[in-house]
Simulated assay, not measured.
Amino acid sequence: MEGIDLSGVDPTRWPEIRRRVAILDEYCAIPDRKQRSRRAYAKRLGIGEAHFSALAQIWRERRNPADLPGAQARQSPKPANRLPAASADVASDVIEKLGAMARRRDVLIEVKRRCADAAIVPPSDATITNMLTAARASHAGATAFEPEILIGTCAARLPAQHDGEVVLPRLLIAVQLPERVIVGYDVAIDPALEPSVDRLMASVRAATDPAGASLRVRAPHLSALEQAAIGATVPVGRPTGLPTLPQLLAPAIGEVGLVFQFAKAKSADRLARIRNVSPLSERDVVTAIQLAVAAHNARRPRPAPFSLAGQPIVY
């Protein structure tokens, strides 16, 4: 990460924080700092002199990039919650009873049924979905799902540089259940290329243990031919209730947000226009995702050793 520890800094802020650190280091190295030099350096950062003095003091005392203003994404203020407390309590209770990994459809139906029985206004679908997503994000234990390796696709909410354009990197991710540990992934930054199933499976196979329990591989987004090529199981009769990638990973892994419905996602250009956000190099994208996967897995229970059903172990 080019000589400074950027852990704790939002990855979309890395280029700007590197720029600020370089300017602050240059200023702090001046033996006899005067008002004229302070004014010049403040101008380079686009801030006032008083603000710059405070920034330089923070940097001299702590030398921690995560402590610099602009190191974290600024959360949009939430609109006033006009939802009756009783309605919110019903939704919270349903999510607690059905579990954070319950299907969204089941939660919506049960919340509306209970609100109707109590003659109170139900929360909107979006509100219930947000509450369920928050519950999933805070759920650190194992799930009740059957053991398997689930493979799915999504995009990382990172503005990436590619051939003069700003794009969202796409991910192919393999998750071990019931622990929700990520056991393999592949990244594609070029919009003309898909993440590699072969590279993904190579990383999954590298994580196997011959003595581990044999797990099926399920990749519902792949074609029948692609599933057959990697030995993925196609459950008979399209059974309901099988987990999906959004259930397991939304809204983020580590500090990296995920997008599962590409059509509804903010464009990469719009994301890059947010204050203090800059398009990332391919190297930064890869590093950010590596750190995000490590942070995600550190919060999960230790996964059981596994092998792959019907496939040779490759080292």
Rank of each mutant, 00 (worst) to 15 (best):
R299Q: 08
F52T: 03
A207W: 09
A88P: 09
R20D: 06
P178N: 06
Q290Y: 06
I173W: 03
E146I: 14
V181P: 01
L177E: 04
V286T: 13
E194M: 03
V90K: 07
I95Q: 14
R104K: 09
F145G: 05
R283Y: 13
Q247C: 11
G8C: 03
R157D: 15
V187P: 00
S124C: 15
L280I: 04
D10Y: 08
Q161Y: 10
T208A: 06
C154R: 10
A192L: 04
R74S: 10
G310Q: 09
G257C: 13
A206Q: 00
A126M: 14
S124F: 02
D32C: 08
R302V: 14
V121A: 13
F262I: 14
D5V: 00
T12N: 12
R18S: 07
S278L: 02
R38G: 11
L215H: 00
R33A: 15
R44I: 08
A71E: 01
V234N: 14
A224M: 09
N297T: 10
H139S: 15
E194L: 08
P301L: 03
R157M: 14
A294S: 02
L291I: 13
A50Q: 14
V183A: 00
R44N: 14
A135E: 02
L245M: 08
R157W: 09
P239C: 13
H162M: 11
L24N: 00
P210C: 15
Q227L: 09
P178R: 12
E61L: 00
L45Q: 12
R13Q: 04
I173P: 06
E110K: 02
S196E: 00
A265H: 08
V217F: 06
S223D: 13
V175S: 03
V277R: 13
A292E: 01
A272D: 13
P305G: 06
V175K: 04
V94A: 03
V277M: 04
A88S: 09
L108W: 01
V256M: 06
R170A: 01
P312L: 13
E61P: 06
W59M: 12
P79H: 00
H51N: 11
S278E: 08
R103C: 10
G99K: 09
L158G: 07
S196K: 01
A50W: 15
P312N: 15
F262Y: 15
D106E: 13
L158A: 10
T287I: 10
E282Y: 09
E2N: 15
P279C: 02
K97W: 04
S203F: 09
T240K: 14
L98K: 06
R216P: 03
Q57G: 13
P15L: 01
P195T: 10
R299T: 04
R18Q: 14
A54Y: 05
F260W: 01
A219M: 11
L242N: 15
A288E: 02
R238V: 15
T133F: 11
P84F: 00
A155L: 15
V107W: 14
L98I: 08
G184R: 05
M131F: 03
P79W: 00
V90T: 13
Y27F: 03
V286Y: 15
I4E: 07
A228E: 14
L108T: 01
